[in-house]
Simulated scan of single mutants.
Amino acid sequence: MTASVLLQPAPPAAASLREELRANRTSTLTRLYQRTFPMVRRHVLERGGTTQDAKDVFQDALVVFYEKTVGGSLVLTCSPSTYLVGVCRHLWQQELSRRNRLPLSDLNEAHEQFPDSAEAPAAEPAPALAVLEYISKLGEKCQRILLSFYYFQQPLEQIAAENSYGTVRSATVQKFKCLERLRKAVRQAVAFTSAH
């Protein structure tokens, strides 16, 4: 009986949150960010990540949270902040697993295939410039979004306005798609290099 009493308030809380997000999404998400992000940042930093890693994980979790809430599939048995921290912990664990699957020894072997910089012709770009090449191939809009968010650390609200997106969510989704395109291009280049 105690368990059912504790679980009964959850659906109205999710419904109430859904209405808050529909009525004033920016204010509601800002409030969630202010309450939750410091906990997420601390968790990520304690496990070898950076503040930027924490921002990326939190943003991904917020997109999942928002979509589930507005879509009506979110069932809360805890506070929204606790739910978001749990999602972030899971996402960070997945990211750590992904990073561990790409050991540094593979990168060192790939590096050994290239001649030393003293032997390299002057026309070849430095490795750091190679990443810029991939970014330049993404297209002007993706370049602008990624640089605005990651380099200039502009808020998504500002990015959405500057790029004529109707909502912050649209800008978030586009940023994620651009980042995935960049990751895919780099992975393909690494796989191609490893194969040859």
Rank of each mutant, 00 (worst) to 15 (best):
Pro115Tyr: 01
Leu146Cys: 06
Glu162Arg: 14
Glu124Gly: 01
Ser170Val: 05
Ala123Thr: 07
Pro127Tyr: 08
Trp92Val: 04
Ala189Ile: 00
Leu156Pro: 02
Asp106Gly: 08
Ala126Gly: 01
Ala118Lys: 15
Ser117Val: 13
Ala123Phe: 08
Ala110Val: 09
Leu102Gln: 14
Pro121Phe: 04
Glu67His: 03
Phe192Asp: 12
Arg169Glu: 07
Ile159His: 04
Ala120Lys: 14
Glu95Arg: 09
Asp106Ile: 04
Leu129Gln: 15
Gln94Asn: 08
Phe152His: 14
Gly166Thr: 10
Pro115Cys: 09
Thr167Ile: 09
Ala195Glu: 15
Asp116Glu: 13
Pro115Asp: 11
Pro127Gly: 09
Ala118Thr: 14
Arg187Trp: 10
Thr172Gly: 05
Ser73Gly: 13
Phe149Lys: 05
Leu132Cys: 05
Asp106Arg: 10
Leu91Pro: 02
Asp116Arg: 08
Ser105Val: 13
His111Asp: 06
Leu132Ala: 06
Ile159Gly: 01
Phe65Cys: 02
Lys184Ser: 13
Tyr83Gln: 07
Ser73Glu: 13
Leu146Asn: 05
Tyr150Phe: 11
Lys184Thr: 12
Ser97Asp: 15
Glu119Met: 11
His111Gly: 06
Ala189Ser: 02
Pro103Ser: 10
Cys178Pro: 05
Lys68Asn: 08
Leu84Met: 15
Tyr165Gly: 07
Thr167Gly: 11
Gln188Asn: 14
Ile135Tyr: 00
Ser194Trp: 07
Lys177Phe: 12
Ser73Asn: 09
Arg183Trp: 02
Ala118Pro: 06
Leu138Glu: 07
Leu107Ser: 06
Leu104Glu: 13
Ala120Met: 14
Ala120Cys: 08
Arg181Glu: 03
Val64Trp: 05
Leu156Thr: 03
Val186His: 01
Glu140Thr: 12
Ile159Tyr: 02
Phe192Ala: 13
Ala189Glu: 04
Leu84Phe: 03
Ser117Ala: 14
Ala189Met: 00
Gly86Leu: 05
Gln93His: 11
Glu112Pro: 00
Leu76Met: 08
Glu95Met: 01
Ala185Cys: 06
His90Trp: 07
Tyr66Ser: 13
Gly86Tyr: 02
Thr172Pro: 00
Pro121Gln: 08
Ala160Tyr: 03
Arg144Trp: 01
Arg98Thr: 02
Arg187Leu: 15
Ala128Phe: 08
Tyr66His: 14
His90Cys: 04
Phe65Asp: 01
Phe114Asp: 13
Thr82Val: 10
Ser148Val: 01
Cys88Asn: 00
Glu180Asp: 09
Leu182His: 11
Leu104Trp: 02
Arg183Asn: 14
Arg144Asn: 05
Arg89Glu: 15
Asn108Trp: 04
Ser79Ala: 15
Gly139Pro: 14
Glu133Ile: 03
Cys88Met: 02
Gln113Tyr: 04
